[in-house]
Design a binder for these strands. Structure first.
Lengths: 107, 107
DNA sequence: CGTTTGGTTAACCACTTACTTAACTATTGT
DNA sequence: ACAATAGTTAAGTAAGTGGTTAACCAAACG
């Protein structure tokens, strides 16, 4: 899933879908690459669960899947906040204890 | 940066760093791969800005850079929430208008 | 009917990625 | 001084990624 977000073209597609559903050719338009390439990117996005699509007639319409995005977000938040809390505790500790400086074996 | 998060081994390293700073060999221990491989992953993590490290004597100590994580998180949140708002508005609209069903040219 | 139009599949290619081993450097413990 | 430790560099490789073109299929249009 992070792999899906790792490619610039795919992020452009995601940003496009942020503004509402889009067909495959609409996703392709701003992308300076052939249609098959876009379809491959779309496969990656779908495999990651970030995007879903339904085909009606001959046009496939794609839309974002917010749940998946929320999952990625959650993972990041957890790591970030738990580390920030550690930093805070360290800050408090250093504010109280002014550097004991342990001796070195051979300078 | 999403590319840095896209690899499982690198995510393990990040999770390890969540629990506080670590040396290169500490990061390597749970990883079933050679040291050079770990160093390469570390390079990627540093290039992405997610991790920083200082070498004192012969041991390099690595720690998380929360700012970078916050950036990724922000990107995701923006996309997710703006799409969720769209969904909400669509929900309201559909609740008021009970499906007009436009005619098809030839069924 | 035949022809666009929108999308899909397949086969291929250049480049990158994620490893490996081997050789090396610099610090630290005895 | 010597050996062990911690990490680094270099070079090679197998597999994966991102793109191409060409051929193809089915729905919509005239």
């Amino acid at each position: 899933m992070f792999h899906a977000l790792a490619d610039p073209s795919r992020r452009v597609m995601i940003e496009r879908l942020t503004g509402g559903p889009a067909t495959v050719s609409e996703l392709a338009r701003p992308l300076a690459m052939s249609m098959p390439a876009v379809v491959q990117h779309l496969h990656v996005l779908q495999a990651s669960g970030l995007v879903r699509s339904e085909k009606v007639g001959r046009v496939r319409t794609c839309h974002l899947e917010t749940k998946a995005l929320a999952t990625a977000e959650k993972w990041i938040t957890q790591r970030r906040t738990s580390w920030e809390q550690r930093l805070d505790r360290l800050g408090e500790y250093l504010a109280e204890n002014p550097e004991p400086k342990p001796p070195r074996s051979r300078p």
